[in-house]
Design a protein around this nucleic acid. Structure first.
Lengths: 233, 233
DNA sequence: AAGTGGTCTAGACCACAAG
DNA sequence: TTGTGGTCTAGACCACTTG
């Protein structure tokens, strides 16, 4: 009886992607309008709209009013990389997580940090240094500066049993951040904490976090030798 | 006259995010149903649906049929990091891009690559080594292995004037990939090509690319000393 | 069994940009 | 000016999941 299921937006999305991948609609070309596609697939325009909007979100096509929908010429891949709390990362490896506070000091904001965060002079900063272990082997060294003006009762926390990462995530969730990855040589305390010879290449993640335009914290996380950060397109 | 504009899905998305950020709806709590929110905001359920769907895509809430919409307890941030072609990266810095082919060899697939890509034995691989310069200073060293079975007429390309990255992007656009970042020490040819002393920490990106489940290429890109990869939440 | 989100529809109006 | 996507609506049916 050749019964046809109704096409869903996913079917349309996939079919359009197919035609782009197989060069039926080559890079830079103009796609049919939403109305034309709706007619072809026998569905409402809203359904086509949702399909094409998803492709636009993925950077496969660009859309302009009156200009129509075009296949992008130079696709810029967007890697989505999930950044979880260290505890989570370690537990996902089926390893035992251990946290240790190295130091906790209240300081005047150093000039470099003041410039980086755009803070007024004389701001009080809580400076923390911590270690995260996986199965009793050093996993990550964390050095963190917290703007006490942004989260005043951070002063009540001793951070002896919980890392500042988890505390802040619970306290100031859903913030914005800027990240930078780089490779740096092991020097000074890093050698000791991560148990590596001086100069060892280490993977480092720096992150600045804001909550509603107020700078909250800057953190530098340095990983053990050989650490890889992975993800998928 | 207190004229009210109709609320859009963005207004609702932002307002819901506000209530989550200000703990009106704390982590782990249950949000009102779509119908209830639609009534509150005076709009159609579809509008609320779109707003909440976007928050779910961002990992702020989770949604389940019959279960309702819940604020996530441990937000996992998703950094979106755009990965452009090297030429683009360099030109965006207002620097002059220069490309040079170092070597081009046809080889039998080495065992490690065969395992990594899941290729049959005896596959022919095109092995390329290239340099990318910014303002005549070494920027990135690229070592690449291309599965000739996946893109046969790669053999017609000499890659003297165009890098394999750009060629593949034009030839096999919209593929899938797996990426790994790490920090490695400069050894062997890297020292020479990137003009650094042995052991210098370098930022490295490895990527495996598939096109419709066929492995196409594996590439190892090593950046100049001090390179940082940046992005925003 | 019932409640919630997931999706589709047919129609409408609007905003932007190309001519 | 006009054609295209952007969005909203009111209603409908379905799918999943919890009780």
């Amino acid at each position: 009886m050749n019964e046809q299921k109704n096409v869903g937006f996913q079917d349309i999305r996939d079919e359009v992607l197919n035609r782009i991948q197989t060069r039926i609609w080559p890079q830079g070309s103009l796609l049919p309008t939403e109305l034309e596609l709706a007619a072809e697939f026998g569905c409402a325009r809203a359904t086509v709209n949702r399909a094409l909007r998803e492709l636009a979100d993925q950077g496969i096509v660009t859309r302009k009013r009156k200009g129509g929908t075009r296949v992008v010429t130079t696709p810029v891949k967007q890697a989505r990389l999930p950044i979880a709390v260290v505890r989570q990362t370690i537990e996902d490896m089926n390893a035992e997580y251990r946290y240790a506070l190295v130091s906790r000091t209240l300081i005047d904001c150093p000039a470099w940090l003041q410039a980086k965060l755009g803070l007024p002079e004389g701001t009080q900063i809580l400076h923390l240094r911590c270690m995260h272990h996986a199965d009793n082997r050093p996993f990550q060294y964390e050095e963190r500066w917290i703007n006490t003006a942004a989260v005043p009762h951070v002063m009540d926390e001793d951070f002896l049993s919980t890392g500042p990462n988890e505390w802040l995530l619970a306290e100031v969730p859903f913030s914005n951040a800027e990240i930078a990855f780089s490779a740096i040589p092991a020097t000074g305390p890093l050698q000791d904490f991560l148990s590596v010879p001086p100069g060892t290449p280490l993977f480092q993640l720096e992150r600045t976090t804001w909550f509603r335009n107020t700078p909250v914290t800057f953190v530098r996380m340095t990983f053990h030798q050989g650490y890889q950060m992975r993800t998928t397109y």
